[in-house]
Amino acid sequence: MSAPHLDHGTEAEAPLSTTAERRAVVGTTGQTPGKEWVIVTRGLKREYDMGGEIVRALRGVDLAIRRNEYVAIMGPSGSGKSTLMNLIGCLDTPNGGEYWLNGQLVSQMSDDSLAHVRNREIGFVFQTFNLLPRSTALQNVELPLVYAGVPAAERKRRATEALEKVQLGARLTHRPNELSGGQRQRVAIARALVNDPAILLADEPTGNLDSNTSEEIMRVFENLASTGQTVVMVTHEPDIAAHARRVIVLRDGVIASDERREQFAARIQTQPAH
């Protein structure tokens, strides 16, 4: 496929990991995955105690995502995709199984260590943007660098660069309410990328945007993916998921399917998903 808005033209897509490769890395419990693997989960479990009743949100998820992959995680509500996203994003810790992020076993980490991992390895993009309303675009983008202990001058330089990359170089001092939805989400993307994270983790990134703006944001993602950024996107919309190169469908807390975009697209044409 060709994306007309890509800055660097159409590059060869990084090869997707094969099923066999993923099985191999997931199967070796307890071993540090190779450097090319950004995310590896082995039998990941998460249960909630809802007033005495145990809800098993994730029942053992084996997932392997290699560097430079652009992956969508789909699933109906209640499938466990939000839980999985929270675990991948190090906002939550699993009850069982392993989670290796960029070579570190994060499933056993303390709160503060997880905060450090979120700061360095993960760039969040939320459905509701989650920008600080009283801060300017620049201040919002600087925030992860503040927590990384980057000095003020360098912080400003890097945040400006990040905003320029999403074509918001002229909006540095605007506050979120002075920006359009698409612009806000691009500020959020700049914030997510400013610390050069291992993965960009997007949760329904187009959920609050109209279809034109959604396309605009998807083009930004494609652009990032083509320049080597690992992107994991959680969505319930098949046509948004179809932008990713690999689509994982979750159902009842386990992975139901894990396919290339083409296979996924072909399948949902014959049997509309969910």
Partner: peptide, 16 residues
Amino acid sequence: TREIGVRKSLGARRRD
């Protein structure tokens, strides 16, 4: 609360 959540997601530790 939401701002605190955002800050935490961006890497703020408890002590921050």
